[in-house]
């Protein structure tokens, strides 16, 4: 798959276990899509715009998060998605009068009920996402060509992918069932939505990535690519590596990196067995924006 093929999709869900580099990957993908002329909205999920947002921190550390997309320049916008905003939007459209939604949300019981039920908040997220993708400019073209969603950890993504089905089972009729069905259609349309799984070149994370990939497929979600982050560079020939492993005792500096290089090779081989393209991003000591720059270079090369 080329980056162009990845970016023909309108929704890219970046997922993976905690600590696998999802957020840096999301930032890099947003910048790469923008470089190819796409109008990108990079989204992360949160509760409070006052709390530092990791994705925005990588794209424009000086900015404060906003609930409506804000232009960061260079073709990239950013928005903080909250379930409650989607719920309000949904109620406003489902009820005959907007004041009913406002009044309903003022009733303590309704608010507490909706706050306490993750399905509502997640459904709100999905709804909010759909609305952002539906937004049109005056000339009829979409405001955002591509949405990159830095999704919370993988278990959550699987639950998210299964959510519209749950909704349809629990709410058999009414506007929410209709909205859920539209959500299912969007998530499962492989020409609209794809997911990118982040992982690390070690045995356990690779097993988890394989489980996640199977889980996403089982829920009819397209997996466009797997990205292995922090892949160690291998400056040795196989002969040199073997010679070092024979000659050096166990407890010597550098041994760990040698072991990591061998383990990475084994782990990546397991990923290569999949029918999904596997992209590699090299390990780096850079932090913040510099790390995103390096990830962009790596991905650009891998997808050239």
């Amino acid at each position: 798959m080329t980056l162009e093929a990845l970016f023909t999709r309108r929704l890219l869900i970046v997922t993976g276990k905690g600590g696998t580099g999802k957020t840096v990957l999301s930032a890099a993908l947003a910048r790469l899509a923008a470089k190819r002329g796409k109008r990108v909205v990079a989204c992360e999920v949160g509760r409070d715009p006052g709390v530092p947002c990791p994705l925005l921190g990588l794209l424009a550390p000086e900015r404060r998060a906003t609930l409506e997309p804000q232009d960061l320049g260079g073709g990239v916008s950013h928005a903080l998605l909250r379930g409650e905003d989607g719920v309000r939007e949904f109620l406003g459209e489902a009820l005959p009068f907007r004041f009913m939604a406002d009044r309903a949300l003022k009733v303590d019981a309704v608010r507490r009920f909706i706050d306490a039920a993750p399905a509502f908040s997640e459904m709100g997220l999905l709804y909010r996402g759909m609305r952002l993708l539906d937004a049109k400019r005056r000339d009829g073209k979409p405001v955002h060509d591509v949405m990159i969603l830095d999704a919370p950890a993988s278990g959550h993504t699987l639950a998210f992918a299964a959510l519209p089905d749950t909704i349809v089972k629990v709410f058999t009729a009414g506007p929410i069932a209709k909205a859920a069905k539209a959500g299912i259609a969007m998530l499962r349309d492989t020409s609209v939505t794809t997911s990118v799984v982040a992982t690390l070149p070690e045995a356990l994370p690779v097993s988890e990535a394989l489980e996640l990939e199977a889980g996403l497929r089982a829920r009819s979600l397209h997996v466009g690519a797997i990205v292995a982050n922090q892949v160690p560079r291998d400056p040795f020939s196989l002969h040199e590596r073997e010679a070092l492993e024979r000659a050096l005792p166990h407890e010597v500096l550098g041994r760990r990196e040698l072991a990591r290089i061998s383990r990475a090779a084994v782990a990546l081989e397991r990923l290569d067995a999949l029918a999904v393209p596997v992209l590699r991003v090299n390990t780096s000591t850079a932090r913040g924006r510099a790390l995103v720059d390096e990830a962009c270079l790596n991905l650009d090369e891998a997808l050239a």
Binding site: P235, F236, E240, A243, L244, V252, L253, G254, R255, L258
Partner: peptide, 25 residues
């Protein structure tokens, strides 16, 4: 832990490998 440079060796191939390993260490 000790640095690999303290395991200097006369075998040329190992010497070059140790050289590559040094900055990693």
């Amino acid at each position: 832990w000790p640095h690999p440079s303290s395991f200097a060796d006369s075998t040329p191939s190992l010497t070059s490998a140790l050289g590559i390993l040094a900055p990693i260490a």
